Amino acid sequence: MVFVKLRIRDLFFSPWKPPLLTNPELEFEKQKEIQKKGLSQLESRLESIELLLTSDKWEDAKLLFHQLTYDLVNFQLQRTGQKEIPFGANLSSFSIPESDRKSKPFRFLEFSDKLSELKNTELDKILTFAIDTYEFLLEESNKEFKSRLMTTLDSFRLIKRIRILLVSLVFTFSFVSFFYYQYKYPVMKDQSIKLYTFVSKENQQTSESRVVSLPVLKKDIGNWVEYEFPLDESMSSFGGLRIDPLEQRGIRFVLDQISIWDSKGKEIYSKRIIVSPNLLPEDYQDFLKIVDVKTASKQMPGEIVEMITTGSDPQIQLVFATLNDAKIIKLKMKYIEAHKVKKK
């Protein structure tokens, strides 16, 4: 028996063009093509018989069974280099091959002489025997293809398939890795911070008429920036603040301090977002709602809370005592792209 010894270097240094075959190898390839064609015809004939039986066309199925009997026998004879038996001739000279299979091949020959007398229900049994025989011939042929009829062209085809598989795996892995990296560590886009004011905890309604925004510049990523939002008269009185820090998921940010100033330049509200001893943001009860935002990593009490957006509409809503005559809101913030985060 011939085995293909495949080494790693063969994948890279063996020729990329099909090899020139010797005359014996050309003959082997011809034999394999004949056998493959014969197996395909046998399979097609079995399918035709099955369709006839399903359609209750018993007599037509018997005629095709008679032809299939000689096809199966002659395929085995041809495969083993023996003389074929003409159609209609006596099959008693045919020697049934030995097999270790549980379902022995060529059992249908027991019924070949009385095929026309068989009942319709018995034809299904013969079809099963014929299928078992086909599977035996297919298995034996494949064994021969990988042993006696093996050529250098088979080795070339094997290496080619492995090369294609490896290239496909590399491209697939690269493709998946690229998009996973883009999802896991997105690059920050140009966008804006938006602030909405609302009346109170009981009246949380926001509207586009009570909103201010400032752009986030990519050049400021990684740096502390104090964003200053001027408020008009319609937004000067409120008891709640909604902060939309981003419009993109997967971006880290730190909101160090929120401060609100009145028209006289007096600070009337101030809050730092730091980690409390219970590892939640300090004064957690002041947070009415947090949407599409989570803490970014394990942090220690007293540290500024580092957060990361988990959706495309992140919000942080705070409530406090009603403020009047508010003119400016200041946010001290820093944006960080996830792939630039330094591990602790």
Rank of each mutant, 00 (worst) to 15 (best):
E140F: 04
G240T: 07
Q204H: 02
L137E: 14
R210G: 00
T69H: 12
L42W: 08
M307D: 01
L63N: 13
K342P: 00
R163Y: 06
M307Y: 02
F175M: 08
D190P: 03
K294M: 10
D71Q: 15
Q204N: 09
P314N: 03
K334E: 03
R148H: 06
L323K: 07
G239C: 07
G239Y: 05
Y284G: 01
I274H: 05
E303N: 13
F12V: 11
E226Q: 06
W58N: 07
I258V: 15
L149N: 10
L77Y: 03
N223M: 12
H339E: 11
Q182H: 06
T128C: 02
R107H: 08
E47G: 02
A61I: 09
T22V: 04
D190R: 14
E47I: 06
I336A: 10
L64E: 15
D292Q: 13
S177G: 06
K343G: 08
I316T: 04
F238P: 13
F253V: 06
Q31M: 09
D220Q: 13
M300G: 00
P24K: 08
E59R: 09
F111K: 12
E306T: 10
Y185W: 11
L280E: 10
L91Q: 05
S297R: 15
K146M: 09
S312A: 12
V2T: 11
D124L: 10
F108N: 03
S237M: 10
Q257N: 14
P97D: 05
F156N: 04
R242F: 03
R161I: 03
G81H: 08
S200T: 11
P277C: 02
E226W: 00
K330M: 03
K342G: 02
S270A: 11
S276M: 01
D113M: 05
L64G: 03
Y335T: 05
S263M: 03
M300S: 13
K57A: 10
L77R: 14
S103Q: 14
E267H: 00
F287P: 08
I126W: 04
I274E: 14
S263L: 04
R249K: 15
K184N: 09
K218E: 14
K57I: 01
L91P: 03
T69L: 01
L217T: 10
I193S: 10
S209E: 15
R249L: 10
W58G: 00
Y134P: 04
A296Y: 04
E110V: 07
E122Q: 14
A326F: 08
I162C: 06
I34P: 01
N324Y: 09
S209A: 14
F238W: 09
L42C: 11
I260S: 05
L165M: 13
F75V: 03
Y185N: 15
E84Y: 00
F253W: 12
F75Y: 15
K294Y: 01
S192N: 13
D124H: 13
T54A: 15
V293P: 07
S276R: 00
M300T: 13
S174P: 00
P230E: 11
K184F: 09
L123H: 07
V170G: 02
I162V: 15
H66S: 13
E306R: 11
L149C: 01
K57G: 00
Y181G: 03
Y185G: 01
N203A: 07
E29Q: 12
L39R: 10
E59Y: 07
P186Q: 05
E139Y: 05
A89P: 00
S48K: 15
K344Y: 09
K330E: 06
A321P: 02
V2K: 15
D56Y: 09
I126Y: 05
